[in-house]
Design a protein around this nucleic acid. Structure first.
Lengths: 198, 198
DNA sequence: AAGTAATATTGACAGTGTCAATATAAGCAT
DNA sequence: ATGCTTATATTGACACTGTCAATATTACTT
């Protein structure tokens, strides 16, 4: 039963990844409505019921896509870190900017990644859930690391993380599409310095 | 065509409100999945296609429900204001607590109210859209007012509003269900004081 | 080479949003 | 009051969706 690593094992190749890719594409082009098991199957060139062999229903595919989203998210933030100057504040600022840029660039995916409450995800299979949990921890870990230098007297790390995460996440959620904003919104770089960090 | 104000005008009475109520009930009991035109119609005791006379499709019903949600939201924040001490900081704190409590109490509705990007809402009818816009402005206005006293040298009001809104909204979105949190989350009252407000 | 497990297909079913055609009832003019 | 017009509700249909059971096909193991 153990798959050989490199070669395509079965009928399709590896359908699981293909379906996730198809789902990502549908999500970005057609919005949440377009993310459909049957459309994914069609895009991957298989029959409408083929996904059932890899995902325990639509919810599992969604969770798997969320996992992929969090990996992309982590990569984006880490790349921003790598390119930013190494001072703690520059690292934090670059990470937040990447956070917001990701939300703007992958609006639908970002919403999917964060919209779902816990109980909505029940029923997803173990593999998807595990992948998603790992990916979530990776993305949160990135933010956590850039917050760490700001741990000081009276400000424990958890408190600072939570504050920064809430601020950047709220900003990203509320103002990801500028068209929706009721008025002109100040840049995040004007807001972040108003946290008491040190 | 003008309706008399008090008496039920037609077959059902006023089906529009009944459908919104049904939608709210379905949302709270059965989650996002349960919000369905046909289920709303059944709950209101009409045929499956009756809603078409009041809503331009499912999206319009959703927008109307979002509007109702924002009205409830505004009421909750204003009630908290009324009960809190009148100092600016107490007012702000109470409003934020009410914000978070609403997100926790009406989790699914809260997500619906804020999840949808602009373009997903396209196609909703004018009445629903107008109601929702008014309700959004009302709820934002409440937050805006409690931020106003903190306008000071160098901090314009818009900047402060945006900061506070982002922080409380991010916190509410991320930690509305504690079960999902990766770790224990500090109370919001420990975070709010770390904004540079004055 | 044969057998077994994994994978994909086909067909079916209930549920969904939406549309067109029809029926019913309310409000208004005469 | 009577008839007309408009608003509202019903019925039936259609395509699309997720999901399941039965079957077929392929890959891996022995």
């Amino acid at each position: 039963m153990t798959k050989k690593n490199n070669t395509a094992p079965h009928h399709h190749g590896n359908l699981r990844e293909a379906l996730i890719n198809a789902g990502l594409e549908l999500l970005e082009t057609g919005g949440t409505q377009a993310l459909t098991l049957r459309k994914c199957a069609a895009l991957a060139g298989v029959s409408h019921a083929a996904p059932a062999n890899h995902f325990n229903g639509l919810i599992s595919l969604k969770v798997a896509i969320m996992a992929r989203g969090h990996f992309m998210f982590t990569e984006a933030m880490q790349q921003a870190n790598a390119q930013a100057e190494t001072s703690p504040w520059n690292q934090l600022n670059a990470t937040c900017e990447a956070y917001i840029t990701f939300a703007r660039t992958h609006k639908t995916l970002f919403h999917l990644m964060f919209q779902s409450g816990c109980e909505e995800l029940e029923g997803a299979d173990k593999q998807s859930m595990s992948e998603n949990q790992q990916a979530c921890e990776a993305s949160y870990g990135t933010l956590q690391q850039v917050c760490l230098p700001f741990e000081h007297t009276g400000n424990n790390a958890l408190n600072t993380e939570t504050m920064v995460w809430s601020l950047v996440h709220g900003y990203a959620m509320l103002f990801a599409d500028k068209d929706c904003a009721m008025q002109d919104v100040p840049e995040f770089s004007e807001i972040l310095p108003r946290l008491k960090l040190k």
